[in-house]
Design a protein around this nucleic acid. Structure first.
Lengths: 106, 106
DNA sequence: CCGATGCTTTGACACCCATCGAACTTACCC
DNA sequence: GGGTAAGTTCGATGGGTGTCAAAGCATCGG
């Protein structure tokens, strides 16, 4: 039994909000960590290597989700976070690739 | 006789800084206005339709330039602003297109 | 030389935001 | 049920930022 946390519909994803969500070192690190993995991963696993406390990580996951970048599902006491590849590719083609390719982060 | 205002080198353009520069409605509007034109244009011309005062516009142009998105040259008492297409395409391929295509702004 | 023009700088103000500690909620396990 | 574990929420705090009014600085035209 798993429920999904509220997130904006594909068409209501705002570009400025999306860019603001990506324009933070911690959130960009989280997104790149998700991007380099295949399939959904526990958010605690992704958050390794990020040097901020648990409340702050939780805050950043919320910002990413509310911006339309990720989907969060509750499974037991864990949260599984996935990137909304399809929606984002329809809405802003090429954006994710341009932002999250490893070479972009030097 | 025209001089160029200081701007970061191509390799020192930072992705987070660049995204933060784009994550503002006024600056994104300015960038999209430049993107839809061919060749350099006076910044005063571009700034039409933006509903903020002159000092604020000046501030936003500075942020864009210091983030590495634009080049500003001084010509007399005017400033001519151009997007750094080549540098940005080398550094973050596809990003400009993804962010500035008109369809992305709905 | 003098006024007007185009843009910038400075200072001030209000607001937003990233971060943390503490407390809370929910779920798993013995 | 009791304890632990994973996340969230709540305040509070400090720093950053968008905005404007006023003043400043070159530059062009007469």
């Amino acid at each position: 039994m798993s429920r999904q946390l509220p997130q904006p519909s594909r068409d209501s994803i705002n570009l400025v909000t999306l860019l603001a969500a990506l324009a933070d070192p911690v959130r960009l690190t989280l997104m790149q960590a998700m991007y380099s993995r295949t399939g959904p991963v526990d958010c605690s696993v992704i958050a390794e290597g990020v040097e901020v406390g648990a409340p702050t990580v939780s805050h950043h996951y919320r910002v990413l989700r509310e911006a339309g970048l990720t989907t969060t599902t509750v499974e037991g006491r864990r949260r599984v976070v996935t990137i909304r590849y399809e929606d984002l590719d329809v809405r802003f083609p090429g954006l994710l690739t341009a932002v999250l390719t490893p070479t972009a982060n030097i």
